[in-house]
Amino acid sequence: MVKSNDRCMIYLPSQTYAISAAKLLRLKGIGASEVKETDSKRGCINGVAVSCRDTAAAKQILISYSIPIS
């Protein structure tokens, strides 16, 4: 889901996973940060924003660490 021109959202099952994913992606050099969720169905942070350029790499890292992506 594109949040802005250059940022993409990767959704995780929960806030715990979102914080975990953001921490992991930062460690791996992908500047992910937790963002305020705007989807009213969710109502809390459970997405990480990454650069559109990095989305595929970010997803690959999360999958390799068995972090589920919604």
Binding site: S14, Q15, T16, T38, G43, C44
Partner: peptide, 21 residues
């Protein structure tokens, strides 16, 4: 309240809870 909002207070609480995990 951790996990119950996207605002800074919820996020700060959630960060501490995660650090404890």
């Amino acid at each position: 309240n951790p996990g119950r909002g996207g605002h800074r207070m919820s996020a700060a609480a959630a960060k501490t809870v995660y650090d404890c995990r």
